[in-house]
């Protein structure tokens, strides 16, 4: 009887593990990127007050810069203007853009009200990129869909885009930035982004 029970339990264990084993593949690295990002965001939200703006910035910076393919995103958001810039200008944009992005996150994730993230699905695209769909659930029951577009580069997966309830961050920024360059030139865009970064900092000083 004991042996039977043991055999049964072993079988059950293998059956329950099987899907996990079968599913394991290179793509799981993509899930890991999203999971790491979301757990960092949750952690920052939960300790937002203790960390303060600077603490949140410091904790978010390494995770954001390693989760997102920043140079590639920079190129995409500048559209046709990217190729008109020299290497120095491109570097300057990337730095400014990254600072702005981290400052925005440090400013916006400034508190915790019981939100949780939950995974929904993963789809492979024709291009080889992957869309990971997740949801942010608030305590009042509100659900925000958060989809991530990831791409593989040199054996690592990076996020290229975040889509919140259908609104693509990349498309929004691309439309904005190209419009600002058209109207105010590349230096105008840099100045605007730097000013926005400063403004994100300010509430922390109050």
């Amino acid at each position: 009887m004991k042996a039977l029970l043991k055999a049964l339990l072993t079988t059950l264990l293998w059956v329950s593990l099987a899907p996990a084993i079968c599913k394991a593949g290179p793509d799981d690295a993509a899930d890991a990127v999203v999971t790491k990002l979301q757990s960092t965001l949750l952690d920052v939200m939960q300790h937002a007050t203790a960390l303060g703006y600077t603490g949140r910035y410091d904790q978010l910076a390494p995770v954001l810069t390693s989760s997102f393919d920043v140079p590639y995103i920079s190129r995409l958001v500048l559209g046709k203007y990217w190729s008109t810039l020299d290497h120095e200008q491109k570097s300057e944009f990337i730095k400014t853009f990254v600072n702005y992005g981290i400052a925005a996150a440090a400013s916006q994730f400034d508190g915790y009200n019981g939100e949780t993230f939950r995974p929904v699905s993963k789809e492979q695209l024709e291009s080889g990129r992957v869309v990971i769909r997740t949801e942010l659930v608030k305590t009042d029951g509100e659900v925000i869909s958060l989809d991530y577009l990831l791409s593989e580069k040199d054996g690592r997966w990076y996020i290229l885009n975040v889509i919140a309830n259908g609104v693509s961050d990349l498309s929004l920024k691309r439309a904005e930035y190209t419009a600002v360059i058209r109207d105010q030139g590349f230096d105008g865009l840099l100045a605007q982004l730097k000013q926005k970064t400063e403004e994100y900092k300010e509430p922390a000083a109050k």
Partner: peptide, 13 residues
């Protein structure tokens, strides 16, 4: 659809 979110169209050059 997930393809809606791909970025191929963004790649200019």
């Amino acid at each position: 659809p997930a393809e809606h979110y791909d970025v191929d169209e963004f790649i200019e050059q």
